[in-house]
Design a protein around this nucleic acid. Sequence first.
DNA 1: AATTAAATTGTAACCGATTACAACAAAAAA
DNA 2: TTTTTTGTTGTAATCGGTTACAATTTAATT
Lengths: 331, 331
Amino acid sequence: MKIKDIAEAAGVSTATVSRVLNGKQHVRPEVQKKVLEIVKQMNYSPNRAAQSLRSRQSSMIGLVVADIQNPFFASVCRAVEDVSQAHNYSIILCNTDENPEKEQMYLELLQNENAAGIILSPTKRLAKHFPQELANQTPMVLIDRKVEGVDVDSVLIDNFSAAKTLTTHLLGNGLKRIAGLFGSPSITGEERLLGYQAAFQESGIKIDPDLIIELPAKMENAHEAVTKLLESESPPEAIMTSSGLLANGAFRAIRDKEIEIPGTLAFATFDESPWTSMTRPAITVIEQPTYDIGMTAGEMLIKRIREQSRPTRQVVLSSRLIIRQSCGSSQ
Amino acid sequence: MKIKDIAEAAGVSTATVSRVLNGKQHVRPEVQKKVLEIVKQMNYSPNRAAQSLRSRQSSMIGLVVADIQNPFFASVCRAVEDVSQAHNYSIILCNTDENPEKEQMYLELLQNENAAGIILSPTKRLAKHFPQELANQTPMVLIDRKVEGVDVDSVLIDNFSAAKTLTTHLLGNGLKRIAGLFGSPSITGEERLLGYQAAFQESGIKIDPDLIIELPAKMENAHEAVTKLLESESPPEAIMTSSGLLANGAFRAIRDKEIEIPGTLAFATFDESPWTSMTRPAITVIEQPTYDIGMTAGEMLIKRIREQSRPTRQVVLSSRLIIRQSCGSSQ
DNA sequence: AATTAAATTGTAACCGATTACAACAAAAAA
DNA sequence: TTTTTTGTTGTAATCGGTTACAATTTAATT
């Protein structure tokens, strides 16, 4: 079923059919009606590959994230999909696992695919060697990670401030030996570490460097690290983690050791998850506007696709500290 | 940068370049080497739209699920992506929300896109009116839901037995008034309901029809339904839910009312989630082999893409009852 | 050495849409 | 009525690959 078949059935040329289908220029209403009828009757829809080849633009949006199993990205992804769908774009999902080679591979793929646009949570390496030409050529929106000195749209939260806020909250509760688990290598993890350090700085309390742990953001890693931490000679008074996945492993390790929260150990983390409000004590968290991030990124991308030359902008959405019982503070 | 440029630079025809790139037939090793060198040097990679147009096959696999925010599907998705990537396919992600129109729209899109294959968790309507022609024409693997009397590959767990096992476990603990929350409209929910009923049947205990609740699998719905249930004149002794999302809302409602588990109310659910082992008491669940389902489906799809005519098969993976403390059983 | 078979390469058609251009018709202006 | 403008339509080129077919070279066989 191709455009030629429709053209023949309607007694017009393929050009006319194409014009009708794309709502272009001058076509007599009666011809238009006839063509549409036949299109409907024959249940025709155009071949995307042909369209894409000719117009040098596909209807695909590349969504490149670290890991779709991370609820943060799942939520972002869902939002992007909702927005895309409303504008007749589909999404190609790419997981990088923070691996620059995978990321590179996917970016090339998306170029070859003539993706209409790309939404990307860049790895640390990409942030260092940012492909500005690619961004100039293909509409792109960065999410979740700050990349300095490049001209590209982005949507993120202020990770530095959020981490500082959370740490300050812990310090404010009289906790001093606060261990921090930060995802690595990851820009997000890095920024949050800086916020953590800044909070200490400001409070005048010294950080025990042994309590700063950078590690790949996987549950098992956090479990292992926290287990070791808790078995050490001078265990911390509090633990904070920089992502939901890390929180999970960490919390499990704490539970395994049957350590009392917040009595013996306080606990707080980035990322609101289904479980953070369900444990007893419920857990103090920094909640990110995940769906909003995805939605905003999606909308910005659509706008850029429509108007390639619009000035770029950085949107910073605000996160929220939800104080619960895991840090010993009353409300 | 197109194949013609490479051909010219290498002093051969485009056909030869194409042959080299696709590892086809007869090309003199020296020519091959030369072409590959130039391809590398000029950093060429082929236009996917053109390839897809001519060969009538894209390198895209459609993954159609109910909702990527459901951790079950996120895990399946991740597995599919891993397998796809290893075979040089990418995935187009489609969320249906159990909405047949959305599903229909996406299936058409995937056809127009010449998707190499489709992995699909079908809605109830699709199961009734299964597009066998589409399945014959495009490699397809069904996941998660059983569809009767069609000739198509599928990967699932035995939902009926799993639900029966879980319900029998509750009954075995002396619980009789067991409320069940089942996702609807969804084949999975339906099958689990049947298993639930069968367990009662077998035990000779009557079901109070008021305790069977079918509802869209969203947290809020479950929260609302359970709240109402708990406020009713004759509240249940136990609640089981047929999916992780429902479990979340249900558990939250129980917590909100500060009802003691398992003393006053027992609780169990389908789907192992990060939080089910972290609450106190920890929750008894049916754990599904999520990653395995995705991986198996992915591999089956690749095989079918390679050999369109192979006989179809149904793979049933086994789920596992994890007994914890939420149902009052010692274990 | 002559014949046959196999390997290598190029030419050009093709996939299915979009669109520049030309042709023609109808309406408006002179 | 003639000329100009505007609107409608078709023809054919084009996007960038793949591949059938034919042509040519090389190797194997008789």
